[in-house]
């Protein structure tokens, strides 16, 4: 049953990110809470991709890409072989790197040991991932560029008559970038129906709640107005996510808005609202309290 596996992977992602963040005195915990089910459904069920061809323990950084550096490599190896019929998966918010790495480990695409390289000097398992980091194919940490690059890949694959689809995972904060709306226009104009866009709508950004920083709502209506097909789902309901993923739009790209909760599965984090972007601990007392409470959610139920 894929459902059982997807639930296991989602819990595994939360546990990994939690344990890692405790060890490192902070981390991107809320992103794990909001996106664990989305990534687990994609990797376990929705994506039609091959087995990883990346080394289980990622290679050290081999220099930036360039004509004089044949040694540089791509993190897309962890999404398997590239061919005309397999899907491609682009991750736009590179700040989700730790969550993506955890998902790759939980789905057997990377070794458990890979996380010991996270954010270490000389490693490719970077804190904010670039295209050499596991799971990454393009460089997207400057937000708003992942969707456009995925649209370019989708347009290119259409021209080549590839049957594989292009998936792109974006965060709702990226909707503040004008480029995102430029991309929606292009996707609609060129009828890129081989492109599926998954939005983690956790309503959070670096400064706090999106509605207080710069309100973008109503998101669903706005994207529909741009001519794309939009489906709203509960982003923690794996059946709903998967059902939406199976939709094949005819005239435009598909947008799946996953409504998520940034402390789902680690409810103690709510205390940190609205500063959820990167959780840091003030002192040992606070840290121990958090560990005790979150462990109940992650290990005792």
């Amino acid at each position: 049953m894929w459902q059982e596996e997807a639930r296991r992977v989602a819990l595994g992602i939360r546990r990994k990110v939690f344990e890692h963040s405790i060890k490192n005195n902070g981390g991107y915990l809320s992103q794990a809470c909001s996106s664990a089910e989305i990534l687990s459904v994609l990797y376990v069920k929705a994506l039609n991709i091959g087995d990883s061809i990346g080394p289980p323990i990622p290679l050290s950084f081999a220099g930036t890409p360039g004509k004089d550096n044949p040694k540089s490599f791509t993190g897309a190896l962890y999404h398997g072989e590239k061919n005309s019929y397999y899907d491609r998966f682009i991750i736009s918010p590179a700040q989700y790197a730790l969550i993506v790495y955890s998902a790759l480990i939980e789905t057997g695409r990377m070794s458990e040991k890979a996380l010991s390289h996270y954010n270490k000097d000389g490693s490719s398992v970077e804190m904010i991932a670039a295209e050499h980091s596991p799971g990454m194919e393009v460089t997207t940490g400057s937000l708003g560029q992942g969707l456009s690059q995925a649209a370019g890949i989708a347009l290119g694959r259409k021209l080549k008559k590839d049957t594989g689809k292009v998936w792109v995972f974006i965060s709702d904060g990226e909707l503040q970038e004008g480029q995102t709306w430029e991309a929606f226009n292009l996707i609609s104009h060129y009828k890129l129906n081989n492109l599926k866009i998954i939005i983690d709508k956790n309503r959070q950004q670096c400064d706090g709640e999106m509605d207080s920083v710069l309100k973008i709502e109503p998101i669903t209506e706005k994207i529909k107005t741009f001519g794309l097909q939009v489906i709203d789902v509960d982003g923690h309901d794996i059946e709903q996510i998967n059902n939406a993923c199976t939709v094949n739009p005819i005239n435009s790209g598909l947008v799946i808005i996953c409504n998520t909760i940034p402390y789902r599965g680690m409810y103690y984090l709510k205390k940190y609202s609205p500063k959820l972007h990167y959780i840091k601990f003030k002192d040992d007392h606070e840290k121990n309290e958090l560990i005790k409470e979150i462990k109940k959610d992650l290990y005792e139920d």
Binding site: E137, V138, Q145, S148, Q149, A150, A151, G152, I153, A154, L155, G156, R157, L159, K160, Q179, E182, A183, N185, L186
Partner: peptide, 12 residues
Amino acid sequence: NMISVCGGLALE
């Protein structure tokens, strides 16, 4: 958007 889209096209 045009510049990033062309990055994607070049990747293909």
